[in-house]
């Protein structure tokens, strides 16, 4: 499998990348880790006229907690997974990074690419939905912060404008008594999800669920939020009954299709099961467990 020819440009900084993008007339693609793009190019399903390599831009692969968590778009999945801040304070992100493709792909793949590619089967989108994150885009008209709910427009389509690149992901600082978890069912290790569920909960002082947010992987045209399930949990004690209700709600609002990963009905059922399990794990973490 051999890609079609293309021109290659190395962006030296963000402004340069934006300028290259703006001048490409929409024919250029941004190259970060390349782990989704290059396979598409090898099958000639993508034939961009040029690639703009942004990986040499400095300062886009850091992780800082600065009122909120700021994740540089170019951080590699492997680094994200091992990062001490992530592991200790945002284990749901470590859960997610650890199940993206396989360890070798994770040595190249970036979180920014995972989001900007907008594949509903990618793992970070659901987690970022659950975390109520936002993404920072820079373009010729400057910087804007896009709430994650507004970011995924359709399969492989985001709110990024043609001359914008995703530079950072911002995640609100975890509230007290909160926790999150990402669970993924796959046909074999390294596969895209049959279903993935990201759940974040905040408990009140009595141990009831004050707020929950839930993101679903690969059961819709984009990663989707299970808003009804979130609603069902609010104010409830995290008991089996409440979890079952949330699972059923999430299953009902998921929109899977039948494919090689299984019939839609099965996937819906897995949404139900994994939603409960993810909430259970998130609650345990909210209580200080693992």
């Amino acid at each position: 499998m051999i890609p079609a020819s293309f021109e290659y440009e190395v962006a030296t900084d963000v402004a340069h990348a934006i300028q290259l993008l703006a001048s490409s007339g929409g024919e250029a693609k941004v190259l970060a880790g390349g782990q989704s793009l290059i396979p598409l190019m090898k099958f000639r399903l993508a034939q961009p006229a040029s690639l703009i390599d942004i990986t040499r831009i400095a300062g886009l692969s850091g992780i800082r907690e600065n009122g909120e968590l700021q994740i540089g778009a170019l951080i590699r999945e492997a680094d994200l997974e091992k990062n001490a801040i992530i592991r200790q304070r945002y284990p749901i992100i470590a859960d997610t990074a650890a199940v993206v493709a396989d360890p070798l792909v994770r040595n190249m793949a970036t979180i920014g690419g995972n989001l900007a590619h907008a594949d509903p089967a990618n793992d970070h989108p659901a987690t970022m939905l659950a975390l109520r994150a936002s993404v920072v885009a820079q373009g010729s008209k400057g910087e804007r912060v896009i709430p994650i709910d507004d970011f995924f427009l359709d399969t492989f389509t985001t709110a990024l404008r043609p001359d914008e690149i995703l530079v950072e992901i911002r995640v609100p600082k975890p509230a007290a008594r909160s926790g999150g978890a990402y669970l993924k069912l796959e046909r074999k290790v390294g596969d895209f999800a049959i279903v993935g569920v990201a759940a974040v909960v905040r408990l009140d002082e009595s141990g009831k669920i004050a707020a929950a947010s839930i993101g679903l992987t690969n059961v819709g045209l984009t990663a989707i939020r299970a808003r009804n399930a979130e609603e069902k949990l609010r104010g409830q004690a995290p008991d089996d009954k409440a979890l079952a209700a949330a699972g059923a709600a999430a299953a009902a609002e998921s929109q899977p299709v039948s494919d090689l990963r299984g019939p839609a009905e099965y996937k819906r059922d897995v949404v139900r099961v994994l939603t409960q399990r993810a909430i259970r794990k998130a609650v345990a973490r909210a209580k200080g467990g693992n």
């Binding site: 782990q35 290059i38 090898k42 690639l51 492997a78 493709a101 070798l104 040595n107 190249m108």
Partner: peptide
């Protein structure tokens, strides 16, 4: 041709990567 098998694995600056999915 799908970045699946790892037969092409090399170290890039010390990290194992699939050389079929890198230009």
């Amino acid at each position: 041709d799908t970045t699946s098998c790892g037969a092409c694995t090399v170290l890039l600056n010390g990290r194992a990567v699939k050389s079929c999915t890198l230009f």
